[in-house]
């Protein structure tokens, strides 16, 4: 997968005249390795198009008076700590605020429910589970509730993600969701990792903030998992 991602990154770099760098597997996540040896933790959710659009909706004041973020992420056999970190970082990214406190419940391994408060006064929750059976695609939902308007990456009155194409034939049922023409054919995970690497190469000032955010969100995820076991709120 890394070879495929680097080939896609090279294509984008060549097309848009962006400097060198390559994707490598880091200790916690994929990283961008720069020619000087520096490494940048990649935060693919920050460039995923649905989240970019949600952020535009927030920053452009399409929503007014945000009250609550309601996030959910369910995966098969995932690393709960990393899942939580990604969702926590997404809340920080979308809101533009740090966390002030959180409380969590769960078993510390397969499920974790988090209620959080942001420094700007907004509230939110994350439903997180790695309890889906193997082979099941990711189920997630990100909803932002405001005095004026609600934004979400899920259709009203539905429970599961929709696909662009549904195919029914003698081989059974297949679905396809393609959202990137330039990187057509890559998996979603690969697309957003390549796009994240390309974002840092295009805008080097992201490197320091992403490295910091990656550390902070993992620490917060660890705090949430501890809170789930202790039943005690955590203040940051």
């Amino acid at each position: 997968m890394i070879k495929q991602m680097n080939s896609a990154l090279d294509f984008l770099r060549d097309k848009y005249g962006v400097g060198p760098g390559s994707i490598a597997k880091g200790p916690e996540c994929f990283q961008l390795v720069l020619p000087d040896g520096n490494k940048v933790d990649l935060l693919p959710h920050r460039v995923e198009r649905r989240f970019v659009e949600l952020k535009k909706i927030i920053d452009g004041k399409t929503l007014e008076g945000i009250s609550t973020f309601r996030f959910a992420a369910f995966r098969p056999k995932g690393d709960l700590r990393k899942m939580l970190a990604a969702e926590l970082d997404l809340a920080a990214f979308l809101s533009g605020s740090d966390f002030s406190s959180l409380f969590a419940t769960g078993d510390g391994q397969r499920v974790c429910n988090v209620i959080f408060r942001l420094v700007n006064g907004m509230s939110g929750c994350i439903e997180c589970s790695s309890g889906l059976p193997a082979g099941t695609p990711l189920l997630d939902r990100h909803e932002i509730i405001a005095r004026r308007g609600v934004a979400s990456d899920r259709v009203v009155d539905t429970q599961v993600p929709q696909h662009s194409i549904y195919l029914w034939n003698e081989d059974g049922t297949a679905t396809y969701t393609d959202v990137d023409t330039e990187l057509f054919g890559l998996s979603d995970e690969a697309i957003w990792t390549v796009r994240a690497a390309f974002a840092v190469l295009s805008n080097p000032s992201l490197a320091a903030s992403w490295n910091q955010a990656a550390i902070v969100s993992l620490r917060q995820a660890e705090a949430a998992l501890k809170s789930a076991l202790s039943g005690t709120p955590v203040t940051f």
């Binding site: 008076g65 499920v111 509230s123």
Partner: peptide, 28 residues
Amino acid sequence: VAPNLRPDIEVEDMLLAAGKMKDGTAFL
């Protein structure tokens, strides 16, 4: 509780609750 969506009412309109059941089930 979260900031009210309806600032002109006297009672809470946005809140979340989480905890555990006696059998260990977590809830949100």
